[in-house]
Amino acid sequence: MSKKSRKKSSKTPSSIATAKKKAPTKRATTQTKSAKTQRTPATKSTKTIAKAGSHKAASKQLNSSKSASAPAGAKSALTEGQKAPAFRLPRDGGDVISLADYAGRKLVLFFYPRADTPGCTREAIDFTRLADAFTTAGTAVLGISADPLKAQEKFRDKHKLAVPLISDEKHEMLEAYGAWGEKSMYGKTFLGILRTTVLIGTDGKVAKVWRNVRVDGHADQVLDAARSL
C-alpha cells in the first residue's frame, strides 16, 4: 500500500468521528432554539393575562366609586306643579313646625348653607326686611338649614331676624326639597346645602323653585312671585 493510500485511510476514521461529534451539537442547538421558542409565547401570554387581570381590577374600582358617589350627589326631582313634600321639624324657640300648619296659605322656604355666614346673613336679613310685605301678600316665610337649634337661636338674636328658623340636622327636608347635594370648593367636592328657595301655593303645590340662588335682590324677586300667585 502506498503512502498516499495510508494517509487517506488514516484520515477517514478521523473525519467520521468529527462528523459524529458535530451532528449531536447541531441537534442540541435545534432543541435549544425550540425550547426557547416554546418558552417565549408562554411568557407573553402570562404578561397578557396579568395585564388583563389588573385592568379588570381597575375597572371594578372605578365602577364601585361611581356607583357609591352617584346617590350621594343626586338631587331631588322636585319640580314646579308637584305636591310639596311634608315635613315636621323643630324651629327656634323649641316649637315644632310642619307643612300642615300652613295649609291654605302661600309659603316661602329658603334653604341656606350655614347660620351667621356672610351670604346667609344677608339673605335672612333681606327676608326679615320684607316680612310685613310678605304678610300683606298672604305669604309665610321659613328659613331652613342643618344648624342645631342653639346656633339658629344665636343667629336670630344676633341679627334680630323676624322669620322662623327650622333645624334639619338629619337633612330629611333638605333632601326632599332638592337642597342637599354635591358642592365644590377649592378643587374639592363634598356634600352640603345648596342655596335654594321654594314657593308653595295655597293649593299645597310647588309654584316656583330657585336653585343656585344669588343673594343680592333675591328676596325681592321671591316677593314679586308671591304677589303674582
Score class of each variant (00 low, 15 high):
65 S>W: 11
100 A>W: 03
80 E>C: 14
221 Q>W: 09
4 K>M: 01
79 T>A: 10
89 L>S: 03
72 A>E: 15
77 A>G: 14
123 E>L: 04
220 D>W: 07
191 L>G: 03
95 D>W: 06
196 T>M: 12
19 A>D: 03
46 T>P: 10
12 T>V: 12
190 F>V: 02
50 A>T: 08
49 I>D: 11
188 K>R: 06
61 Q>E: 14
150 K>H: 10
200 I>H: 07
129 R>F: 08
156 R>F: 00
205 K>W: 02
102 Y>V: 01
112 Y>P: 00
13 P>T: 08
217 G>V: 12
10 S>R: 13
113 P>K: 02
205 K>P: 09
155 F>Q: 01
85 P>W: 10
223 L>Q: 04
96 V>P: 00
207 A>H: 12
214 R>T: 11
2 S>N: 09
27 R>M: 12
140 A>G: 05
60 K>W: 07
57 A>V: 09
23 A>I: 04
114 R>D: 02
112 Y>D: 07
46 T>I: 15
37 T>N: 13
198 V>T: 12
42 A>L: 15
202 T>M: 13
156 R>Q: 07
150 K>N: 13
59 S>M: 14
161 L>W: 00
214 R>L: 14
20 K>T: 04
38 Q>A: 10
185 M>Y: 07
47 K>S: 12
148 P>D: 01
86 A>Q: 13
90 P>S: 07
93 G>M: 07
96 V>N: 05
229 L>N: 08
197 T>W: 06
216 D>V: 02
204 G>F: 06
51 K>W: 15
93 G>Y: 01
200 I>C: 09
109 L>W: 02
89 L>P: 06
